Amino acid sequence: MAETKMNVQLLAHTQLTQEFFDVAGDEFRDILLNQLATDGQVVALSAIRTCYSANKPSEIVAKEGAKYFGSKASDGGGGTDADRLFRQIVASKHTSTLEHLTFTFAIEGVSRALLAQLTRHRAGFSFSVQSQRYVRMGSGDRSGGFDYVVPKEAKIGAAEYVFVSAMEAAQKAYDDLRKAGVPAEDARAVLPQAASTNLVMTVNLRALLDFYAKRRKGNGAQAEIADLAETLRQEVTEVEPWTAQFFEGVSASV
């Protein structure tokens, strides 16, 4: 049993197939595409233009990619004309077209309290969570007992001693129940909200922007989930830099 710290890793995100490149390469060469746009931008353009173009979805980039990715933004903003289109779509709230971009994260060492908050965001999210029913949390089990998250406000002065003492008491209660023959699925009832857990989460871009708007720092969110929101933003903007303006826009508009 020990205090844990949050760890977040991006496991996977939207990527183009070789079949796509085989088609797009006819008029818009693979090497040029890789230089001008991320995979996410290509998917976003394909989805958006499908709504307004006479071209088929599989033809959008081959026939329109050079126009959008190869010219400067016509609205005077930064980036290419594709970036201008993305800004227009977000401004007009036609963001269902951004649901085609997905991101899968490994999220480790977060509290069950955070999990309860996180799973309130259901549309556009998928969760696979470590089970306290099947993963035994006894001191003598493989887990070594349950780990826990200490809120920042509980680390001040005597509060930390009180908090850690409560965790130790919960562990003892769990261990004593198991020794008394209580199944793990029932003994887990005494584990606190601070008990840490691990999960895999997949979310689309539209849902993630909405999550960030509600849970970002400075918007009244609890510190732990606000830290998670910021970390998810960083992970996404690292692989899809063009999305940064929309996370910033969320902050500015709330």
Score class of each variant (00 low, 15 high):
K179L: 14
A213W: 08
A12P: 03
L11P: 04
D175M: 05
A229N: 11
T38C: 07
K63E: 15
T50V: 00
R122A: 05
S126E: 12
A187L: 10
I225F: 11
T50S: 08
E3G: 02
D186L: 12
E238S: 12
D186E: 13
F28K: 06
G181S: 07
G79W: 10
Q41D: 03
L177S: 05
V203A: 03
L118G: 01
Q15C: 14
Q130G: 02
R112N: 06
G138D: 14
D186P: 00
S196N: 05
Q193F: 12
L33H: 05
E99W: 02
M201D: 05
F163R: 05
A170K: 05
L85N: 00
A37S: 08
F28G: 02
Q35H: 11
K155L: 13
A73E: 07
G40E: 01
D141R: 07
S96N: 08
A169M: 10
S196K: 07
Q15A: 15
R178M: 10
N204D: 11
S92W: 03
V129G: 01
V190N: 07
G124L: 08
G218N: 03
V190H: 09
K214T: 06
E185C: 10
A113M: 07
D147S: 09
T102W: 08
K63V: 06
M167E: 09
Y212N: 00
K63H: 14
I89S: 05
G76V: 06
D22E: 15
T50C: 00
L232H: 09
L11I: 15
D147A: 10
F247N: 01
G138P: 01
T104W: 02
Y134G: 02
G145W: 13
R142D: 13
V150K: 08
